[in-house]
Each structure stands twice: as C-alpha cells, then as structure tokens.
C-alpha cells in the first residue's frame, strides 16, 4: 500500500509535466526543452510572492507562466515552425538556457527557500500503519482535477480543434482551424500545466533554483516517449509507468547498483525507442509520412 501511494504521487508529478510537453508536441512536433524552465519561472513566482495569500500566489504563478509560454511561442518558436523538428528542438534548447541564465542573473545560482502551503498541511497522516503525506494527496488531487478539466476542454470547440490539429495539422488548417490560435491555445494550456507542476514541486522541495525544473522535465520526456509521442493518454500512462519503474528500482535494486538507476532508466528508453519507436500508445503526430 505504502508502495502504491509512492507510485501514485511520483507518477502524478511526472504526468503533470508530461502532459504539458505532449500538448505542444502534438500540435507542432516540438520537443520543448524549455518546459522545465517554465516550471522554474513558476517556482520563482512563488518565491517572489512570499507572504501574499496562498490562492493569490498560485493564481499569479499560473497566469504568469501561461503568459510566458504563449510569449515564448510568439517570439522563438513561431519563426521556426516550418523547420524540421530537430531545428525546433535546438531552438527550445536555446530558450531553455536563456531562461536559466536569466534566472542566475536575477536570483543568483543558489537556491531560494519557499513555503507554498502553511505548515498545518505539510504534515504526515497515519492511517492504519500507512504514512500518507498531505502533499501526496494534494499532488494526486491536482493531477486528477487538471486531467478532468483537460478532458472537459477537449470536448469544447477549441478542444476539438486542438485534437484535429494534433491528428493532422495540414488537413485541420484546410478545414478552417486557425494555426496560430490553436498553437497558442496549446502553449497556454502547457503553461498552466507547467505552473501546476512547479507548485507541487516547490511544495515538495521547499527550494527553488535555476535548474529547478530540469530533472523532472527529463523524466517527463521519458514518460512522453515511452507513452507515445503526442498522445495525451499515452503521456499519462507513460508517467505512471515511469513512477512505477523508478519507485520499484529504488526498492529492488541492490544497494551497490542503486546509484546507476538513471542509467538503467535511460537504457529502458533506448530499448523502447527501438522496439516501439512510436511508444506504447501510438501518437498520430509520430507517424512518419512520405
């Protein structure tokens, strides 16, 4: 049971992050390395917000990161939209380093401490021998809420357009979907997910630094690849699978090998890329057309 809770909590964190990445990959085949830096900005908003009420801090984080994501698309990604995916990948790499070095410039390279939630809800609950952190509950709750909202959104007009664009961008445009609008929407939602991830992550770590988002983002990438590029259900599935793998390997690997966990996980990635290059749930965007 304890094990299951750890998997759920870890998987939910990856799922939040992976959904943000999968959304933008779906519509424009962009692997967004800068997503981790969106999360970092969200974390610093919480640091700067300091003593204002929790809801106001959370809201401003979501708004600012959402705005940042849309602005990044306008400035950096729109001009290279028609280039090959590798060029876009390199562009996002550059954006990522730019944001990171701006953070070093503004806040220094050392971490800043942050307290997202009041101490009363950071404790541990003991129910029948289980240790349930409030934070685990919040993580899972946030993920479920956002997932349900995303599913509801996908039923609306904008949501249908987004799905159509992820399916086949050219045909969607021919049918009257506005390219800029649909990509803007995808980035805005991706930003909201990044902000949500940063809130959970900041609460877990209590520290925000310029490389705040990097590790989580790398694992979320793996989740997206494993799950099926561009497929949203695949991203969620991949995230929980990864949560399972990382918690299990932490528990099962002998002590001497535990430090090589990351190497094992990346090895699994290579294997999956080989055996099923399109991921567990095949995303339509990943299909190569001639």
């Amino acid at each position: 049971m304890q094990y299951l809770i750890d998997v759920l909590s870890q998987g939910s964190l990856y799922a939040l992050c992976a959904l943000g990445i999968a959304l933008t990959f779906g519509v424009m085949r962009l692997i967004n390395f800068a997503h981790g830096e969106f999360m970092m900005v969200g974390g610093y908003v919480l640091v700067v917000a300091g003593d204002i009420p929790v809801w106001a801090a959370l809201l401003s984080s979501v708004i600012i990161v959402g705005f940042l994501a849309v602005a990044t698309e306008r400035i950096a990604f729109r001009p290279v939209r028609n280039a090959d995916p590798e060029t876009m990948l390199v562009t996002s790499f550059a954006v990522s380093f730019l944001l990171q070095s701006l953070a070093v410039l503004l806040f220094g390279s050392l971490g800043r401490s942050v307290r997202v939630f009041p101490p009363s809800i950071t404790g541990v609950m003991h129910i029948g021998g289980l240790n349930i952190r409030w934070l685990d509950i919040i993580t899972v709750a946030v993920t479920v809420t956002l997932l349900v909202s995303l599913m509801a959104f996908m039923k609306t007009r904008h949501g249908v357009e987004l799905r159509a664009a992820a399916e086949n961008f050219t045909v969607a445009r021919l049918l009257g979907v506005k390219a800029n609008q649909v990509i803007g929407t995808a980035f805005a939602i991706s930003g909201v997910f990044a902000a949500a991830t940063s809130i959970v992550l900041a609460a877990q770590r209590g520290l925000v630094e310029p490389t705040f988002g990097t590790t989580t983002m790398l694992f979320a990438f793996i989740a997206v690849i494993v799950g099926g590029m561009g497929s949203l259900p695949g991203a969620v599935l991949g995230a929980y699978a990864l949560g399972l793998i990382s918690v299990t390997s932490q528990a099962l690997l002998p002590l001497g090998l535990r430090q090589f966990r990351d190497a094992f996980i990346f090895l699994v990635v290579v294997l999956i890329l080989l055996l099923r290059p399109e991921g567990i749930l095949r995303g339509h965007a990943a299909r190569v057309r001639i």
């Binding site: 085949r29 692997i31 090959d84 995916p85 590798e86 990948l89 790398l218 990438f221 690849i225 590029m229 430090q259 090589f260 990351d262 190497a263 990346f266 090895l267 990635v269 290579v270 890329l273 080989l274 290059p277 190569v288």
Partner: peptide, 25 residues
C-alpha cells in the same frame, strides 16, 4: 547498432539518452 536505426527526433533523443548514461556511469 541500435541507435542508428532510429530516425530524426528519435535518434536525437537516443543520443541524449547515451549522454545521460555515460554521465551517470
């Protein structure tokens, strides 16, 4: 042998995985 069978993005990600594995080792 395995990596060069991948195309485009998947190959880029595969080389990235290689970087992470060597770093970890």
């Amino acid at each position: 042998i395995p990596l060069m069978r991948l195309n485009g993005l998947a190959a880029s990600l595969g080389t990235f995985a290689l970087l992470n594995i060597v770093y970890n080792l």
